[in-house]
């Protein structure tokens, strides 16, 4: 365990060392944004839409009281989505999707000697392959989380208005009540931290694969499990620090 953590930090040191041409680096970042970011839009939108709707239904049922105004459902939905659902739940979804993609891609490159080929050419393979993935996730995951917030709020509004017995005005009034801009900053800070853990931990497990196809599968599983654990733990720490 301690050796694994030590090797993770040694790899990070190599990742943040120079690799080669800047032009090639940014080309890689754009490719990674496409593969890791744009390709995640459908799953993020779908999950957010339905979870947002489910949260609204739950809140409507549990807040059905003459003492609580109906617009409070919209307010509570916004709080739940912005503070936890979007950054944490979508973070876990992305750990599964992006994490397994990164680990299996790097693992396959390792066992087919593609990483050795890069290294033999005199290129810092860790920096060339991993840094663009980290930068792409740091840049694009906040956009995905914003999209998730919008989709989840839309899902909540749609279900609240169609079957929840509230008007569109009441839900939107609730969403706009007691504005707290730091909530959004809080969501983005958490997303950036989670993005770093997902991309770096998954890269570590993929890059350090030894063996064959079976080990690539195992590395992929380890990448998802350990990224998820890192997200859950750091979520607790960040909530304590930032709230």
């Amino acid at each position: 365990m301690i050796a694994t953590i030590g090797n993770y930090f040694l790899l990070l040191r190599k990742v943040f060392s120079p690799s080669g041409k800047q032009k090639m680096f940014w080309k890689q970042v754009i490719d990674e944004i496409h593969q890791l970011g744009f390709d995640s839009i459908p799953i993020v939108s779908l999950v957010s839409l339905f979870v947002g709707a489910a949260i609204t239904i739950q809140l409507q049922i549990n807040m059905d009281s003459p003492w609580i105004p109906i617009y409070a459902v919209g307010f509570a939905t916004r709080k739940a989505i912005v503070m936890e659902l979007a950054p944490t739940i979508i973070g876990l979804i992305l750990a599964g999707k992006i994490g397994s993609h990164i680990a299996s891609q790097l693992g396959s490159m390792r066992i087919t000697e593609q990483i050795d080929a890069i290294e033999v050419m005199g290129v810092n393979s860790a920096s060339y392959l991993i840094l663009p993935k980290i930068i792409a996730c740091l840049m694009f995951n906040p956009i995905l989380i914003m999209l998730s917030i919008v989709a989840a709020l839309f899902g909540g509004w749609a279900i609240g208005v169609s079957v929840g017995g509230m008007t569109s005005y009441e839900f939107i009034y609730g969403l706009q009540s007691f504005p707290h801009p730091f909530d959004l900053a809080y969501a983005i800070i958490k997303t950036v931290v989670f993005a770093f853990f997902i991309s770096s931990i998954s890269s570590f497990y993929g890059y350090t694969v030894k063996g064959g196809a079976l080990e690539v599968g195992r590395a992929s599983t380890k990448a998802v499990v350990n990224s998820s654990i890192a997200i859950i733990l750091s979520n607790l720490v960040l909530t304590q620090l930032l709230m």
Partner: peptide
């Protein structure tokens, strides 16, 4: 030194090690 020597090296790996992407 390692990097400068490596730039004088070409290597053909057993499976080719071509970049799939």
């Amino acid at each position: 030194l390692l990097t400068s020597i490596r730039r004088e090296i070409g290597m053909v790996f057993q499976g080719g090690a071509l970049f799939d992407s």
